[in-house]
Design a protein around this nucleic acid. Structure first.
Lengths: 165, 165
DNA sequence: TAACATTAGTTTCAATTGTAACCACTACCG
DNA sequence: CGGTAGTGGTTACAATTGAAACTAATGTTA
């Protein structure tokens, strides 16, 4: 019932696309598997979505950011940030205060409660990451780091100049 | 106005999470950048969503699959497949015929038109992939391949056994 | 300082996605 | 056979997401 053993019916020519070898596809499957597993772990425990957790993760390291600065840091778009912020406010995980110097700007921070949650999630997230990393050698970890960097730059370049249109 | 030069206000302790170094996060950003860029290229030209294109990519190589077999091949869920299939039928990119041996089962194939589109998209997708790969050395490409394989297996293991709960 | 452009953030509405319930059919078991 | 369990696939409905319009404040120019 699997397609692996359909042998003769396979119709791949030289110009065919082998989805299972196609990097963008593999990245997508890998990324979804990993993110969903982790999100399930903290989502269930603390009522957090992925975007909300990302906002907390950034605010945990960089206090006093505005929504626009979160956009920069997270590569999320401003609507997603706005929604994450309002759900975090509802949970009392963050606080928001006006910047007197620019009354459009809102300064965000983890609340007491938010920091407690943050400090419980961090080790949990790190546990998943360590578990992933444990399947690699030191050497491979270094390689992966530099490879991701390169791919990221390349993909970034596409976005900036309609290069591939 | 960037957060890079906020220097002294950074509050990272030893147990903090450095999102920008956190593998799951980096994978997610990379994967989204890459997939979105490519999807934009073929989506605009041929009115295809990512799931629909994936279905075509598989049918291009493996004719006569059922929806369930597509689920296996693509790691998409059956609702997504069902929707992709119905949109592809609407576009006349695929054909569907009943399996007389099991009347629940529907046999899917690229139509004439679908195959034409497929054959125009394949090189386009490959161009993006090659462009990505071109930023790596041969050695790095091999490394990446094997690293992804390992990470995939690990993440798969999470799903199968509630290992990390 | 009036007019216009820009920036911060939110709201709205439509499209996409995920979960669960559902029909139709086949397989198994007494 | 008749009943029940399992499979293939779709539908329905709720939650998520994205694009664009909008409000409010600041900055800029004449």
């Amino acid at each position: 019932m699997t397609t692996e053993n359909r042998g003769p019916q396979e119709a791949a020519g030289p110009d065919d696309l082998h989805l299972e070898k196609f990097l963008p596809y593999r990245l997508s499957v890998l990324s979804n598997r990993v993110s969903n597993a982790i999100a399930q772990a903290y989502g269930a425990r603390f009522d957090l979505t992925i975007p909300a957790w990302r906002v907390m993760a950034i605010l945990g390291r960089f206090p006093d950011l505005s929504a626009a600065e979160l956009v920069e840091q997270t590569a999320m778009d401003k609507v997603a940030i706005s929604r994450a912020v309002s759900s975090l406010l509802k949970n009392d995980y963050i606080t928001r205060s006006e910047d007197p110097a620019d009354r459009r700007r809102q300064v965000l921070n983890l609340s007491e409660l938010g920091r407690e949650v943050y400090e419980r999630i961090v080790p949990l997230a790190q546990r998943y990451e360590r578990d992933l990393m444990a399947s690699l050698t030191d050497e491979e970890r270094r390689q992966l780091d530099s490879i991701i960097e390169k791919l990221m730059d390349r993909a970034q370049a596409w976005a900036e100049s309609g290069l591939m249109d």
